[in-house]
Amino acid sequence: VLFENREQLWLSSPRVNTENTHGTGDTLSAAIAAELAKGTDLKDAIIIGKQFIQGAIADGIDVGHGHGPTNHWADLSDEVLVESE
């Protein structure tokens, strides 16, 4: 993420071998928006959003066929590496 003040935020996490990735972009943006609505500052909201989606992917639920959904009831992941410049 490149902020207006030129600060950079790099987030990374392990790849999860799963087909349960349907809606990951929507889930990430909704998690960030929810944090902003709670008054969390932008940088922290993005970090929490990444932790949320990483946990939701890692603890996926198996329903239907093909690409299933992420698990919106999962815990935040502690596997997200955060680097700022």
Rank of each mutant, 00 (worst) to 15 (best):
G23H: 10
E35Y: 04
T40M: 05
A30W: 10
S29T: 11
I53W: 11
H67I: 12
R15A: 08
D41L: 03
L2H: 10
A31N: 04
K43A: 06
L81F: 15
A45I: 03
G49K: 07
I47T: 03
L42K: 12
S12Q: 04
A31K: 03
I48R: 01
D59G: 11
G66V: 11
G55D: 00
Q54K: 06
A56M: 07
T27Y: 08
P14T: 07
F3V: 10
A58I: 05
N17M: 12
A37V: 13
A45Q: 00
K50Q: 06
D59L: 15
A33W: 15
H22L: 08
D78Y: 09
I32F: 10
T21L: 08
L42W: 09
A30D: 08
L81R: 13
E4V: 13
T24F: 06
N71A: 12
N17Q: 10
I53H: 05
D78T: 08
L36A: 08
I57L: 05
H22K: 03
R15C: 05
F3Y: 08
A58Q: 04
D62G: 15
S77F: 09
N71M: 13
H72M: 14
I61R: 02
K50N: 03
Q51G: 01
I47W: 02
G25K: 08
G49W: 07
I47V: 07
A74H: 02
E85M: 06
I46P: 01
A37E: 05
S77R: 06
P14K: 06
S12D: 03
S84M: 14
G25A: 04
D75I: 06
L2K: 12
V82A: 05
